[in-house]
């Protein structure tokens, strides 16, 4: 019986990272600076106007506001009924070039050009018109190609039968979606089960908590902002246009994530654009 390794880096992991840091600091630095500089333009160009009509759901995570409390992770676990080793959203401690630590909270990126959508042999993973990368759990054959293809490690395979009650329930909420069968790959849904019925009831995702992803609602510091990227008035669009710098993860892969970040401002090198 095998235990799945924990997603979050532990202390020994961090130590090995440091070793690598010494090895590659200069190179990684050069790549990352270029990445951040380019991103702001690219992000603004691609936010808004995608798919033309209808909403395009997206998220902005302000790294400066994130305190690493993991409430987003716990709320996600509770409403999706996940065990601790099945996290859709993970919070890790990362470092800037200058060695300052920050928390990186990572849901599914809901990429515009999602590698997982392209590789799925049965179209179990698909891109919804509103930009959400969704899954049909009755169609997934469990080949795990999407997991191998995802550059963000956002996919989790359901190794076991569904659990009775998530360890984060009821503290962080109660199960809101059906259990997935053993043997399929799972992912963050941007809480489509809240967005879709919410829209029918005339609610606005990103503003009304009942129609907003659980991780956004649970965040005590409002580090996460959700909304329609196509609507310039939506909270996420306003925040994106007000942000000095924004970035997306692994921009160089051209996956065009729908999740944006405001990079840590502690390091002066990354201020302004």
């Amino acid at each position: 019986m095998s235990e799945i390794k924990k997603e979050a880096p532990d202390s020994e992991n961090t130590a090995s990272r440091r070793d690598f840091l010494k090895l590659t600091g200069a190179l990684a630095g050069a790549a990352a600076v270029a990445q951040v500089a380019i991103t702001n333009k690219a992000a603004h160009a691609s936010s808004g106007g995608e798919e033309g009509h209808g909403p395009q759901w997206g998220m902005l995570i302000d790294i400066n506001l994130c305190i690493g409390c993991q409430y987003c992770t716990f709320a996600c676990e509770a409403i999706n009924n996940l065990a601790d080793d099945m996290k859709y959203c993970v919070v890790t401690t990362e470092t800037t070039q200058s060695g300052e630590e920050f928390f990186l909270s990572r849901p599914c990126m809901h990429c515009q050009e999602a590698p997982c959508v392209h590789v799925c042999p049965v179209r179990a993973t698909f891109k919804r018109p509103d930009g959400i990368v969704a899954m049909d759990y009755t169609r997934c054959i469990g080949c795990r190609y999407c997991q191998v293809a995802c550059p963000y490690d956002a996919r989790v395979f359901n190794w076991r039968d569904p659990i009775e009650l998530s360890p984060q329930s009821p503290t962080f909420g109660l199960q809101e979606v059906d259990n997935r069968p053993r043997g399929v790959v799972e992912k963050c849904t941007f809480c489509t089960h809240r967005i879709d019925p919410g829209l029918e009831r005339g609610l606005v995702p990103g503003i009304d908590p009942q129609a907003t992803p659980a991780c956004v609602v649970a965040c005590p510091t409002t580090a996460r902002i959700f909304g329609d990227l196509n609507n310039p008035e939506s909270p996420v669009s306003v925040a994106l246009s007000e942000a000095k710098t924004i970035m997306r993860l692994r921009e160089e892969l051209s996956t065009e994530p729908h999740v944006y970040y405001i990079p840590p401002q502690t390091d002066n090198r990354f201020q302004g654009s």
């Binding site: 390794k5 990272r17 630095g29 470092t95 070039q97 993860l249």
Partner: peptide, 14 residues
Amino acid sequence: SSTYDPYTPVIRVS
């Protein structure tokens, strides 16, 4: 495989 963190991505050995 490479990690996804923005500034100091490293090779993670699993």
